[in-house]
Amino acid sequence: MTLTELKYIVTLAQEQHFGRAAERCFVSQPTLSVAVKKLEEELGVALFERTKNAVRTTSLGEGIVQQAQRVLEESERIREMATAGKDQLRAPLRLGAIYTIGPYLFPHLIPQIRQKAPDMPLYIEENYTSVLRRKLRNGELDAIIVALPFNEPDVLTLPLYDEPFVLMLPSNHPLAKKDAMDAADLSCSDMLLLGEGHCFRDQVLQACPSLKDSETQHTITEGSSLETLRHMVASGFGITILPLSAAGEGLYAPGMLCTREFASPQPMRTVALAWRASFPRPKAIDILRDAVKQCNVQALPA
């Protein structure tokens, strides 16, 4: 049984005439007649009643012809899907980002993607690096935005930008008198950090090894998000280290908060795009890369 044979019986049922049906199918009448007879023999039932003047479907043939019509319609849908799939910027793109990047990048990135690929549906997700890694590997996400290092078999990474860290503190804090901080010597009893599981926490502790000292470790308070840490600083609860894109002071009363850069070597993170090497839509990856460049990330207001 082939799609061609199904097309023949559907057309014959509509035309009720071998000659007209053959013309519509662009074959000779004997070719169509032989194919219909072959299908009837394969199924072991008569699909049509044949007379000198007309061809009519049998009662059983009517149901089979209807089913054949549905099969042909579904096969056409497959062709349409395949045709649409040839345009790499029409299929949905599933993009993930870690919690410390997504809230600050997505509001600027999404309009850029819409402008460059208006017909590409976009689904976004924020999560931990470990969860994004699993979803990328399992095909639940097409690409993810993470901080390096990120190593995964059969996954490609493309560095997008370097983002410096800054110290955020109340304007009346003693450290606010300094113009620049030395990350290696920073040791504060009122330091606020993200909780376990956030890669940004690990990056801060690596950049500021003095925070790991036993004398201060028990005084470090943990928060669930960068927004929580920033609000805690605004309430006078302590100080924190943030990526530059998250260090917005404009949400609070003027003069309440201030940020201080770190002295050279300035701690920073490299933000990268990661995708499976087998992902069949390189144009979508190119769009993502170009859209991020257009965002001018380090100048983003939070």
Rank of each mutant, 00 (worst) to 15 (best):
T4H: 01
E5C: 04
E5V: 03
E5D: 11
L6T: 02
K7C: 04
I9A: 03
V10F: 05
V10P: 01
T11P: 00
E15H: 08
E15R: 14
Q16E: 09
Q16Y: 01
H17E: 10
G19A: 07
A21Y: 01
E23L: 13
F26N: 06
V27C: 06
L32Q: 01
K38L: 09
L39Y: 05
E40G: 10
E42R: 12
A46H: 12
T51E: 12
K52H: 08
K52M: 04
R56E: 12
S59A: 14
G63P: 02
I64W: 00
Q66D: 09
A68C: 08
R70Q: 13
Q88C: 06
L89M: 14
T100P: 11
I101G: 01
P103V: 05
Y104R: 10
L105G: 06
F106N: 14
H108C: 02
I110R: 04
P111V: 10
I113Q: 01
R114T: 06
P121L: 05
P121Y: 07
E126N: 11
L141I: 14
L141H: 10
L158V: 12
Y161A: 06
D162G: 12
E163W: 10
L169N: 04
P170H: 06
S171Q: 15
L175F: 12
D185W: 09
L192Q: 02
G195F: 07
G195A: 12
C199F: 11
F200H: 11
F200I: 13
D202K: 15
L211C: 11
K212P: 06
H218L: 10
E222M: 07
L229A: 11
A234P: 12
A234R: 04
G238T: 06
L242V: 09
L244G: 04
A246D: 05
A246G: 08
L251C: 03
A253F: 03
P254H: 04
G255M: 05
T259M: 05
S264T: 09
P265Q: 03
W275N: 00
A277Q: 13
K283A: 12
D286W: 00
Q294W: 03
